[in-house]
Design a protein around this nucleic acid. Structure first.
Lengths: 216, 216
DNA sequence: CAATTTCAATCAAACGATTGATTAATTCAA
DNA sequence: TTGAATTAATCAATCGTTTGATTGAAATTG
C-alpha cells in the first residue's frame, strides 16, 4: 500500500492517476475508458492502478473522494449567523454564488469534475451516497439557511429547499450544456468572458427568485 | 421492416431494440451496455442489431432520432403570432412549460430519454448535432419569441436567450438529480405528486424571471 | 564504513473473459 | 418458392487483472 501522505500537494503517480481518471471518466464515461488509456495519460504502467487503488473501481472511488475534497475547498462555507439581516444574507448569497459560478463555468478543472459526478449521478453510483452525505446535504442546508433569511421564509420549508435546487440547476445546466448554449449564442466556446455574462444573468435571477420564494 | 405506428409496448423487433437501447444506454451508458444485453431485453438475437441498424452505432443513431421525434410530439409547438399581448404570451409560456414539466418530471419514459441525451451531450456525440439542428434550435427560438413578448425584451437578445436556457436548466436538473432532490426533501421518489409540487415552484420562478429579464 | 537485506514502486508480458461483428443455416410469411 | 427475418456459432480484438522481474533507496547487519 502507498504510505505517502495522501494529501493536498503534488504527489506523483497516485495523483496523476486520479487526475487522468477524473478527466477520462468525465469525458468518455467509466466503462468507455480503458485502464491502459488512464495509465498512458498518467505516464505510468497499467499495473499501477491495481497497485495504488486495488483496481479500476478503486480509482473511481478515489476520484469521487477528490471531487468532494476539491469542491469543499472552493465552497469554504462559514457557519451562518442566525441574526443576519435579510440584506446581509442576500449579500452573502450573491458573493458565494458568484464565486461558485466563476469556478463552475470559468475553470476548466470544473468541467471535468462536473462531468464525472454527472455520470455517477445518472448511474446512481454508491459514490453519490458518499458525496451527498459528506458535503452535499450540509452545503445545501447552509444555502437554505441564507436563502430563508434573505427571502423571509422558513429555511427548511419546501419552497426554499426546492428554490435552492432550482438555482443550482441553472448553474449546472450551463456547465453541462455549454456547447449547446455556445452554439445558440454564437460563441466559439464558453470562456471567462461568457461565464461572466452568464453569471450576471443568473444573479439577476437570484434576486428575482428571492423576491418570490414561498409566494405559491 | 415493421413500419407500424409507434406505440408504447413492443411493436416489432426494431422498435423493441430501440426501446431497449434508450433504456440501457440511458441508465448504464453506451459503452457499458453490451449488444447481448440489448438483445436479451428486446427478446431477440444479437445479430438483429446488425441486421436492422448495421451495428451498435446504428442503433445509437436510431435512438437519437426517436428522441427528437418523441419530444417534438410532446412540444407540439405552434407558430408564435407577432401581435401577441404580453399577458397572452405569458399565458402561453405557462401552459407550454406546465406541459413540458409534467412530461419531463412525471413520465417514466422521459427519465430514460433525458438520461440518454444527457450522455450524448457530455460525450459531444454527433447525435447532438442532429438533434440540435433538427429541433433544439427551432424550439428554443420559439420560446424566446414568447419570452421576449412577455418580458418586453428583444426576443433574440442575449438576456432572453440565456434566461430561457436557465429556465430549461431548472427543469432538467430535477429530472437528472431526482434522487438527490428526493433524499433532501424526504421523499421516497419523484412521482406525480412531487412533480406537481416542483412545477408549482418553477412556474413561480418563471414569473419572477420574466419580470426581471434584461434588467442587468 | 561497507555489505546485505528489505520494501515500496514500477514495468513488460501474459491471462481468461467479454466485446462487437460476422457467417451460414434456418424459420416464417406471402 | 422466394425473400425477409431470425438464429446459433464463431471470429479477432480488446477488456481488467495478475504475474514475476526489476529498480532504487532506505534499513539492517557485520
Amino acid at each position: 500500500m502507498a504510505q505517502t501522505s495522501a494529501d493536498t500537494p503534488p504527489e506523483g503517480t497516485r495523483a496523476a492517476l486520479i487526475a487522468a481518471g477524473v478527466a477520462l471518466f468525465g469525458s468518455k464515461g467509466f466503462a468507455a475508458t480503458s485502464t491502459r488509456e488512464i495509465a498512458a495519460r498518467a505516464k505510468t504502467n497499467v499495473a499501477s492502478i491495481a497497485y495504488h487503488f486495488g483496481g479500476k473501481d478503486g480509482l473511481r472511488q478515489a476520484c469521487g473522494a477528490q471531487f468532494a475534497q476539491r469542491l469543499t475547498a472552493v465552497l469554504q462555507q462559514a457557519p451562518v449567523p442566525a441574526d443576519l439581516r435579510p440584506d446581509q444574507a442576500r449579500a452573502l448569497l450573491h458573493a458565494g454564488f458568484a464565486r461558485v459560478i466563476g469556478f463552475i463555468l470559468g475553470q476548466a478543472e470544473a468541467a471535468e469534475m462536473v462531468s464525472f459526478m454527472l455520470r455517477e449521478v445518472s448511474e446512481n453510483s454508491p459514490i453519490v451516497d458518499q458525496v451527498y452525505a459528506g458535503f452535499m446535504e450540509g452545503t445545501h442546508r447552509n444555502v437554505c439557511a441564507l436563502w430563508g433569511l434573505a427571502s423571509g421564509c422558513a429555511p427548511e420549508s419546501d419552497a426554499v429547499r426546492l428554490s435552492v435546487f432550482s438555482f443550482i440547476g441553472q448553474i449546472l445546466y450551463f456547465r453541462i450544456g455549454n456547447r449547446i448554449v455556445a452554439r445558440r449564442m454564437g460563441w466559439d466556446a464558453l470562456g471567462q468572458g461568457e461565464a461572466a455574462q452568464i453569471a450576471a444573468v443568473l444573479l439577476v435571477h437570484l434576486d428575482a427568485m428571492l423576491g418570490t420564494t414561498g409566494k405559491v
